[in-house]
């Protein structure tokens, strides 16, 4: 599954996310910033898990579960599209 950050989303270095289309804003931590950067780069979920496991002190099963939970939050707040999805 490939994720795409919506065009209207701006992410700052400090982890502040702003959706210019809706006015919603969010904050995330350092790990979240890394995940969002990897999404921006067009990485697959497997690649994101690989990166996080290599750079943070976590095991693959836990990491994948946490990343999928994070991604489900991104979807819930309409911040990302999955491939082929074009809702605003």
């Amino acid at each position: 599954m490939t994720l795409k950050l919506k065009k209207s989303i701006a992410v700052s270095d400090s982890g502040f996310l702003f959706n210019a289309a809706t006015g919603d804003s969010f904050t995330t931590n350092e790990t979240g910033i890394d995940i969002l950067q990897l999404i921006k780069e067009g990485k697959e979920i497997d690649e994101i898990v690989e990166y996080i496991v290599a750079n943070y002190n976590t095991s693959p099963p836990n990491c994948e579960k946490d990343i999928l939970e994070f991604i489900s939050l991104l979807k819930q707040w309409h911040l990302v599209d999955t491939e082929g999805d074009s809702t605003p």
Binding site: A20, A21, T22, G23
Partner: peptide, 16 residues
């Protein structure tokens, strides 16, 4: 982004 109990906007943000 902030609405008072009277329903008046007390904060707002420019959107696109």
């Amino acid at each position: 982004t902030y609405i008072t109990p009277m329903g008046k906007g007390w904060a707002g943000v420019v959107i696109d």
